[in-house]
Write a protein that binds this DNA or RNA. Structure first.
Lengths: 220, 220
DNA sequence: TTAATATTCAAGTGTTCAGTTGAATAGTAT
DNA sequence: ATACTATTCAACTGAACACTTGAATATTAA
């Protein structure tokens, strides 16, 4: 005897959102999509899944309404269906951080206390960047940078950091950011910059969260 | 070759939250728990699940960190592990409403446009209630009312509404609320009150959302 | 102690899920 | 047309899930 009724039907629908979020690979795909529209190929490569599998996950995300797909010539581009989805992901992260012991343990194991304590807050960064007090460093791949980045940010993917480190101003503090609060690229960049004797910190969040807060984003 | 690395491990953990939210019965249980601490028996009865099954779902919710369990004498009480969980549920609802066509259809089928348009917003209600302009009506069962309710609210469960309708002031507008935005009790109450010629609307949300916003709650 | 109650555990069943592989589709370029 | 590409579909495997049933555990009451 399966249940019926308005409320239960609604919950069945709500559960679809939950189901879409119930797989680590899908969450990873969502984080990539949150950087801007991307093709299946790019997403498959970025997430390390094979095409068919990535495609299936993406369709599941689309059926749950979290992303939309549009075909452009040869390829299909997926993008977030709205900013509320970023908020939802943020909320999941927040609850996980606070309520799941394993998350706290993981963060403790992989990140030093110093990494944890240092991040700069979005509004503070905005203020200091406008006054020219800091260099904003975007360590994501160029495609993601082009799809949108913090105003005035310099794009140096992690791989090229060593070789281009000389071009960064020595006297200003450098604020690195990437895809989200746990994007390892930014942590790594900060570590390397500090090893070179530069003053560096990371932004507490990534670009999607920045955008969600309505802060200015530069394109191209 | 299963994936590894800090980020993926984190996403695996985040996915646990999603999985916990991926079942309609668990979402329903969460809505009940959001009204206040409840025993397994109460929750099983309220949700129409049998004991063992309810217990299993509750344990899954607990393992995902969404609820906590404490044993008190003979029975185990489950409660939300924090207000951020209410926020998360709210967010899921919000995304579902805006992104899943079936939800819009369901709402359209079960609720008249009038029901949809009439709800009063929390802050507005607070202001008008303080001035004594409205009667606030809590249509939830007494246990839930006792665990916390809007300041000055009158508790009349739906079943007793007809018989106690006379005791409500005739001249003031009545604002009904219950467990959440889709709790049917409030819709139903408003419909019945209007049929009796009273002026009635419902609160846009339920008690948990009210509490989440930091608005005052009366206990007992 | 024994009995009663609330909750959980354990085992079984049918269903759904994640991931793989290979074929099918639908556009684009030649 | 033909070949080529990006994406999706279809079929399959092993694992996980929802739910049921009946037994086990733990706490209180008699």
């Amino acid at each position: 005897m399966s249940k019926s009724g308005f409320k239960h039907e609604l919950f069945v629908q709500f559960a679809r959102i939950g189901k879409a979020l119930s797989n680590a690979n899908r969450l990873e795909l969502l984080e990539f999509i949150a950087q801007g529209a991307r093709s299946v190929e790019e997403l498959a490569k970025a997430s390390g899944l094979n095409f068919a599998n990535a495609s299936q996950h993406l369709q599941e995300l689309r059926q749950a309404g979290l992303v939309t797909a549009r075909k452009e010539g040869l390829r299909v581009y997926y993008e977030l269906s709205g900013d509320d989805v970023i908020g939802l992901l943020d909320n999941v992260r927040h609850v996980a951080e606070h309520r799941i012991a394993e998350v706290q343990k993981l963060v403790g194991t992989y990140l030093s206390a110093k990494d944890e304590l240092e991040p700069i807050e979005a509004m503070e960064l905005l203020g200091r960047a406008r006054k020219g007090l800091v260099t904003v460093l975007d360590v994501r791949p160029p495609e993601e940078f082009l799809a949108g980045h913090l105003p005035g940010a310099v794009n140096i993917p992690l791989a090229e950091l060593e070789s281009r480190i000389g071009k960064l101003p020595k006297n200003k503090e450098i604020i690195a950011y990437c895809r989200g609060p746990y994007c390892v690229l930014a942590f790594e960049a900060v570590a390397r910059l500090r090893k070179k004797g530069l003053k560096a910190r990371r932004l507490e969040n990534g670009l999607p969260e920045w955008r969600l807060r309505g802060l200015p984003v530069e394109v191209g």
